[in-house]
């Protein structure tokens, strides 16, 4: 059995410039982010909620990025989509 100290939440994304910017944006707001790289895949994990702030991603990309654009990067996630609106996406566990 794999032992984790706390339960993790995470997102897998296809490796791309846009996904790199998302990872960078998440890391700016959360010190706890772990980044794993697998063939073709960028994976972030955290023991707290993962917040993707659209304005930060837009700033890093140098163009407007809407949370719905995440549809083109996301491969998988674990946790629950707590928020997905015009400003941000939040993924984490509720209980």
């Amino acid at each position: 059995m794999v032992i984790s100290i706390s339960k993790l939440t995470g997102i897998d994304m296809a490796q791309s410039e846009e996904s790199e910017a998302i990872v960078h944006a998440v890391s700016e707001l959360n010190d706890d982010i772990q980044v794993r790289r697998m063939p073709g895949i960028l994976r972030i994990e955290s023991s707290t909620d993962i917040v993707i702030d659209a304005s930060v991603v837009s700033r890093l990309l140098g163009r407007e990025w809407h949370p719905d654009d995440m549809n083109l990067s996301i491969v998988s996630f674990f946790g629950e989509v707590k928020e997905w609106d015009d400003d941000e996406i939040i993924i984490g566990w509720s209980h």
């Binding site: 059995m1 794999v2 984790s4 339960k7 939440t9 674990f78 946790g79 566990w93 209980h95």
Partner: peptide, 17 residues
């Protein structure tokens, strides 16, 4: 990675609620 860590350690403690 995908089952024990994500599901047994992540999802199921949540569903225990």
């Amino acid at each position: 990675l995908y089952f024990e860590e994500q599901m047994l350690n992540g999802l199921f403690p949540d569903l225990a609620f």
